[in-house]
């Protein structure tokens, strides 16, 4: 089923379209949320809620933005709501817990990067995730973050420099 057809059928509440939609985007959105939240449980909850919100608001989707951009924005807003909720009930002072285990599937190089990313701000992690991990272009990233392409360029350069400094301290480049 093509993207356009999926969207039209989603607007009618079609179950098959919902299945296709979730299968198509769950991996992409999971990674986008995971790199910011860095918690599998939070990520999975937010991922489910993102799709439920998408089904609810799809009728308002006019096709002006890319569907990925639209879904990504829903995901990030849902994640922010989740963080607010957790802060409100004092579950976490800092939404990103220090106790979260390193992703089990990572090798040594990736573990260092993972640790380095932890030391970055949410905004820095977000932009690196979009461009370097997910491979979005500057233009796509600018739309997702609702900023100018020039802002993406400069923010990305600063974030990369910060990450490079952090992993340098952990001898990342000596291990290559």
């Amino acid at each position: 089923m093509e993207e356009k057809e999926i969207i039209e059928r989603l607007k009618k509440g079609d179950i098959t379209a919902k299945e296709c939609f979730v299968r198509e985007y769950q991996n992409l959105i999971f990674n986008a949320i995971f790199q910011v939240s860095r918690d599998r449980v939070i990520t999975e909850d937010v991922l489910q809620e993102t799709f439920l919100r998408a089904f609810k608001y799809i009728k308002g989707f006019k096709g002006e933005a890319n569907i990925t951009t639209w879904l990504y924005r829903i995901a990030m807003n849902t994640l922010k709501d989740e963080f607010k909720k957790r802060k409100a009930v004092n579950m976490l002072d800092n939404p990103i817990s220090e106790d979260i285990p390193i992703e089990y599937s990572f090798d040594e190089k990736k573990k260092i990067i993972w640790e380095g990313l932890k030391r970055l701000s949410e905004n820095e992690r977000e932009i690196i995730t979009l461009v370097d991990i997910r491979g979005f272009s500057y233009e796509e990233t600018a739309k997702m973050l609702d900023v100018l392409v020039g802002t993406v360029r400069s923010r990305l350069a600063r974030s990369r420099e910060h990450l490079r400094d952090e992993i340098l301290k952990m001898d990342f480049f000596d291990k290559i």
Binding site: I29, E44, L47, K109, I167
Partner: peptide, 15 residues
């Protein structure tokens, strides 16, 4: 760094 980052996708659980 970019090359390592590009391999850091995590497999999503099926939700």
């Amino acid at each position: 760094m970019k090359s390592t980052l590009s391999e850091m996708n995590v497999q999503s659980p099926d939700v």
